[in-house]
Computed example of a mutant assay.
Amino acid sequence: MNGPRPEAVALAARYADQTRPAHSIGKACHAALRGSYSVGMTLAADAALARRVSLCAVGPLADRGEALQINLGEGPCVQALRQRAPVLAENLDDPDTTHQWPVYAKRATAHHIHAAFALPILHGTDPARQAGLVLTLYRDRRGPMTDADLRAAQDHADAAELLLLTAPGSADGDLAHAWLLPTHAVVHQAIGVISYRHTITTGQALALLRAHAHTQDTDLTTLAHAIVHDHLVLPESPEPPPSGSTDC
């Protein structure tokens, strides 16, 4: 891509003075699409979404779709960052489409998400440490996106990036770090606590935190809060889920 289309530049100019420009762009994208989608937007400092900010979630499916990717560390958004290309998953029941994130696909469909389309705007050259903005569209029915909806979604993703690049305090070449506000700081604090207590790397600590969140059917932020503020100590390995529990 040589640069944003004029439509994206015009969108960015329209919402530049908004108090929450990224949320405004997300709502505008939701309204512009001809199909029925929920819209989520994530800014990540790495391809595993270990450090990220959820910039917006518009529509009934977006909150859960975004949270599942963060909690599990897998999903179309994660794949899009790692492979540096859009992921257009038109059927989450198709194992050939979702083989890189089978747990996410199973849990997403349990929440009536049957298609997901992740469009990344990337920064950095190392796929293992990829950073960038990802606009993800969630839909409760299977099938491909139309070309018109794909172009509209890409324009809104490009407009969001332009707004981020011009935000006060943005550092040259470090877009993600500049916008990684302490919205989810408790998760990073919990990773540090786990790393210290168990004498493991921060990557291993994140994996342990995610495993416990998964088996307890809770989200990372809730579990992290218990570790940091309520002095919860995790065992070395997660407990199996209670008898009769489900993956939804």
Rank of each mutant, 00 (worst) to 15 (best):
Gly26Cys: 12
His188Leu: 15
Ser195Ile: 07
Pro95Met: 11
Val186Glu: 05
Thr221Ala: 14
Ala226Lys: 13
Gly192Lys: 10
Gly65Cys: 08
Ala115Ser: 15
Met145Gly: 02
Arg141His: 14
Asp63Gly: 11
Tyr37Lys: 07
Ala45Cys: 09
Leu208Tyr: 06
Ala110Lys: 10
Ala13Ser: 06
Ile200Tyr: 02
Val187Lys: 12
Pro6Phe: 04
Pro21Cys: 10
Ala190Asp: 08
Phe117Pro: 01
Leu165Ile: 05
Ala157Thr: 04
Ala16Asn: 05
Val58Leu: 07
Ala176Tyr: 03
Gln100Ile: 01
Gln130Arg: 15
Ala44Thr: 02
Gly169Arg: 06
Ala108Thr: 08
Pro238Met: 03
Trp179Cys: 06
Leu181Lys: 13
Asn91Ala: 12
Gly26Lys: 06
Thr199Val: 11
His214Phe: 14
Pro76Glu: 10
Ser36Met: 11
Ala67His: 11
Val78Glu: 04
Tyr15Trp: 14
Gly3Ala: 10
Ile227Lys: 01
Thr199Asn: 13
Leu68Phe: 10
Thr202Asn: 12
Thr246Cys: 09
Leu220Asn: 10
Pro60Lys: 06
Leu33Tyr: 07
Pro240Cys: 08
Leu88Phe: 14
Met145Lys: 03
Ala205Cys: 05
Ile200Asp: 02
Asn91Asp: 15
Thr201Gly: 12
Arg82Val: 02
Gly40Leu: 07
Asp94Phe: 07
Pro240Leu: 09
Ala62Gly: 07
Thr125Pro: 01
Asp172Gly: 10
Ala211Tyr: 08
Tyr104Lys: 04
Leu92Asn: 08
Gln130Ile: 03
His99Gln: 12
Leu49Asn: 07
